[in-house]
């Protein structure tokens, strides 16, 4: 700021007093209703509905013995996960055992 003071008023923060305002849900509702009349509407970003797309886009083509297929299917259903999750876990174990 330059030295000259065109208006010559000193600021006293103590003069800036808090004033109580109604923040109740009723007041917010009244505000929203007034806003609606003038086209001030809810423009907050909306969350997408439904299940998010799975990040599991890779695919393996594995044929296994029928009993193994049945057991993998039962385990995945019991845990509420995709069968691919079990394959990922098995692969992680395999890598750990073989220092891959």
């Amino acid at each position: 700021m330059s030295d000259k003071n065109p208006f010559g008023i000193s600021i006293t923060p103590g003069k800036l007093r808090a004033k109580p305002k109604d923040t109740s849900p009723k007041t917010v509702a009244k505000t929203d209703a007034a806003a609606e009349k003038h086209g001030f509407t809810d423009r907050s970003p909306k969350k997408r509905r439904g299940r998010k797309p799975s990040p599991r886009t890779g695919q393996v083509h594995a044929k296994v013995m029928p009993d193994v297929a049945r057991e993998i299917g039962d385990e995945a259903r019991a845990r509420g996960v995709q069968q691919g999750v079990l394959i990922e876990e098995a692969w992680a174990l395999y890598k750990a055992e073989n220092d891959l």
Binding site: T23, T27, V28, T31, A35, F40, R43, S44
Partner: peptide
């Protein structure tokens, strides 16, 4: 710079 409910709620305070 839009006509949103966020604007009106801020004005209320």
């Amino acid at each position: 710079g839009v006509a949103s409910r966020l604007v009106s709620r801020a004005i209320s305070q």
